[in-house]
């Protein structure tokens, strides 16, 4: 026993070095595998969408409206933008107000309640939001499937993201900026609007872009609220359904027609490309604001 261990004796320092190299190697392996898995998933999804979508993407997609299960997607592209931007316009004022309240008056008794409700809203299944707006707006208020009902559903989904990013953005404003402003005789309102808001603006905008990306990709809350239309929007906020890209994916992929499949692939490509562009834009914005704050 003693002889055996003597023959395989490794000095403690070398043993430690060996252990360190092993854990180092293990760490690198795990990270590399994780990276490859994530990268492979993202790339293969985009590859599949692009390969089929590129085939289906004709000029007519952008210039013609849908005719049954053929034609273009002009109505859906326009509807998606209308619903997403409309939802943001509805969500930004209350979302930012709530975020600013949480950041600036976080000590208030009301703040934890607000934060909790915001967190619940993030976790709420989007189809439940759609169902809720369907009951309240589409049925009870009698708006029918409409742009406004769809935008409200998207606004409810965007709201907690905008609240949270606004709160974070305002919290990150250095305390000495507020002190400097107060020492010059600024009121709370002035400190928030003229000092914190300009400093926090780019971070808030990042959150708004995230909400926009989420809105563009939402399907479930719109099924009950926006309906579908083969025509471009006629300017009516209520009583007039609107088309949108995710509906085209959801509905047309199960149709037994080649033309319907092509529309679904094209819609999927457009939605993905849009989300990708927004993600890149928000990244660039974040990098720019970081450079700026140096």
């Amino acid at each position: 026993m003693a002889a055996a261990s003597a023959s395989t004796f490794v000095p403690p320092r070398q043993r430690r070095r060996l252990r360190r190299r092993l854990t180092d190697g293990l760490g690198w392996t795990v990270s590399t595998v994780a990276f490859l898995l994530l990268g492979a998933a993202t790339i293969s999804i985009f590859w599949a969408i692009a390969a089929r979508g590129a085939h289906a993407l004709h000029l007519a997609i952008f210039t013609q409206v849908t005719q049954g299960t053929a034609g273009g997607l002009l109505n859906a592209i326009e509807g998606t933008l209308l619903l997403a931007v409309g939802g943001l316009l509805l969500a930004i004022p209350p979302g930012m107000a709530a975020g600013i309240f949480l950041a600036e008056f976080g000590a208030s008794r009301f703040a934890p309640v607000l934060r909790f409700m915001s967190d619940v809203l993030v976790g709420l299944p989007s189809i439940v939001v759609g169902y809720f707006v369907y009951i309240v707006a589409v049925v009870d208020l009698g708006w029918g499937f409409s742009a406004l009902a769809g935008a409200i559903a998207l606004a409810i989904i965007s709201l907690p993201y905008i609240t949270r990013t606004s709160e974070m953005a305002f919290r990150q404003v250095p305390a000495d900026m507020r002190d400097a402003a107060r020492a010059l005789g600024a009121t709370d309102g002035h400190v928030i609007l003229r000092i914190c808001l300009p400093i926090a603006a780019s971070s808030v905008l990042t959150g708004v872009l995230l909400a926009l990306a989420i809105s563009v990709g939402e399907t479930a809350p719109l099924l009950y609220t926006a309906g579908w239309s083969n025509y471009t929007w006629n300017g009516h906020l209520t009583h007039e359904p609107v088309g949108y890209l995710t509906y085209a994916i959801w509905a047309f992929i199960t149709e037994p027609f080649q033309s319907a499949h092509a529309l679904a692939y094209a819609a999927a490509l457009l939605v993905s490309a849009f989300v990708l562009v927004i993600s890149i834009a928000s990244r660039m914005l974040m990098a720019a604001s970081r450079r700026h704050s140096r």
Binding site: M177, A180, R182, A183
Partner: peptide, 20 residues
């Protein structure tokens, strides 16, 4: 206090210009 701070300026330990 707002009117007071107009009459009584304060210079901080660390310079804190606004990012303007």
């Amino acid at each position: 206090p707002i009117a007071l701070r107009r009459r009584v300026g304060l210079i901080f330990q660390r310079s804190n210009p606004f990012p303007f």
